[in-house]
């Protein structure tokens, strides 16, 4: 690995922060940071065109070249640890590198290359899905592969290849990804009619408001608790008061008032 590791030119960044990082990017530089091995992290900037081209081509390990500086990191091997993208996911805006030794065991992520024409794909409506397209592995820096090959020719309908089934290139490589993670599977597409029918019925009902039912029940219970008392009181009061008052007052008043004008 180290013989063919590309050289990455870098300069120390003296002024840090969003404003200066933006200015660097405007000048065709890529801000980055190098850390690890118990040393202080160093903020650097790379030539964006070169760095992005190498990173996008899948290179992971680089030899650092910091001309004009007597920094201890001159000639250091570095491993890409993280990349930050802009909001559209196109442009690399920052890169993290870790100092590594060639024989050091590191954790890295490798891409999966799917080889072969799966026999299950000959079935009508069959689709191959790749929920996981990368694996986290632990290995020596010199052994770090560009990609891990997965043979899918024997994969049939409803067949699944998990991360544990993937054969790593070297025996001393350790898989860090969950062994049950699905790497490739073939599924047959189902008809959409049932889903649409449920969607229609769901919309007709409208969304349920969480807790509204309980609140309504509580309110009803409260009212119900008050009503029997009120219901017992109201008829009693109404039955006693209204007819009595109406029966006693109105005819009496009418009887007393109406004949009066006649006179």
């Amino acid at each position: 690995m180290h013989e063919k590791a590309p050289v990455l030119k870098a300069d120390l960044r003296s002024r840090l922060g969003t404003r200066y990082a933006r200015r660097d990017r405007a000048q065709g530089l890529l801000p980055g940071v190098i850390y690890g091995h118990g040393q202080e992290p160093v903020a650097v900037s790379f030539q964006a065109e070169q760095a992005v081209r190498l990173i996008e081509s899948g290179e992971k390990v680089f030899r650092l070249d910091m001309p004009g500086s007597a920094h201890a990191d001159e000639g250091q091997m570095i491993l890409v640890k993280d990349i930050q993208f802009d909001y559209l996911g196109d442009t690399i805006v920052h890169a993290d590198f870790a100092r590594v030794d060639l024989n050091e065991r590191v954790r890295s992520r490798v891409h999966l290359d799917f080889h072969g024409e799966a026999k299950g794909l000959k079935t009508a409506g069959a689709v191959m899905l790749h929920p996981t397209t990368e694996l986290d592995i632990e290995c020596r820096v010199v052994d770090l592969p560009d990609a891990v090959v997965v043979e899918v020719a024997e994969l049939d309908v409803d067949g699944v290849i998990t991360a544990a089934d993937v054969k790593l290139p070297l025996a001393d490589m350790r898989l860090l990804t969950d062994g049950h993670a699905v790497v490739a599977q073939i599924v047959v597409q189902k008809e959409e009619v049932a889903a649409e029918a449920t969607a229609v019925s769901a919309e007709a009902a409208g969304p349920e408001v969480i807790g509204e039912k309980e609140r309504a029940e509580k309110a009803a219970a409260k009212e119900g608790g008050a009503k029997p008392a009120g219901g017992a009181a109201k008829p009693a009061a109404g039955g006693a008061a209204k007819p009595a008052a109406g029966g006693a007052a109105k005819p009496a008043a009418g009887g007393a008032a109406k004949p009066a004008p006649k006179k």
């Binding site: 969304p207 408001v209 509204e212």
Partner: peptide, 12 residues
């Protein structure tokens, strides 16, 4: 038909 949540915490 149009999608919408099944359950919501607040109506609006």
């Amino acid at each position: 038909m149009a999608l919408m949540p099944k359950r919501v915490k607040f109506r609006k």
